[in-house]
């Protein structure tokens, strides 16, 4: 049994990285391993936008991550610096920056890069999806 963490930088609907990461996470769990944390960075943070609205016949990556996180109790951590640049904000950041509303899906949590390093130290493997 091994402990994995994921670093996801892939733009959700422009390339396949997010979907590959989602399937990889399922496979890791099915094989009996542990996922310590999934860290979204760079364009990867865009998947945390609760307003993402792909056509009904396409996979909704935001909802897919949220469902998996709730079912399997996985931490979905979003880099706050990368997120704020791209309009992904929670209630506190929206108020601090005088924005009209929050936009982050409640299954995701804003935090700092330290959470990535901390996850690495607690994992056997870090796998990047870009």
């Amino acid at each position: 049994m091994a402990t994995f963490s994921l670093l996801i930088t892939a733009n959700p609907y422009s390339n396949q990285g997010q979907y590959s990461a989602l399937e990889f996470t399922k496979a890791v769990l099915e094989a009996g391993h542990i996922i310590k944390r999934i860290f979204f960075y760079a364009d990867g943070v865009l998947v945390a936008n609760r307003l993402n609205c792909p056509p009904a016949d396409e996979l909704n990556l935001t909802k897919s991550w949220a469902k998996l996180a709730i079912e399997k109790d996985i931490e979905l951590t979003v880099c706050v610096t990368a997120a704020l640049k791209r309009g992904i904000v929670n209630q506190a950041e929206a108020e601090r920056n005088a924005l009209t509303s929050e936009s982050i899906d409640p299954a995701f949590e804003l935090s700092g890069l330290g959470q990535l390093t901390e996850a690495m130290l607690a994992s056997d493997r870090l796998v990047t999806f870009g």
């Binding site: 930088t9 760079a42 610096t81 890069l113 330290g114 990535l116 390093t117 690495m120 130290l121």
Partner: peptide, 19 residues
């Protein structure tokens, strides 16, 4: 592209953890 700065930021964070 932003990847140079983004990678450098991770690097500095790891250095703060004394890796």
């Amino acid at each position: 592209q932003g990847s140079g700065k983004e990678l450098l930021d991770i690097c500095l964070m790891c250095s703060a953890f004394e890796m």
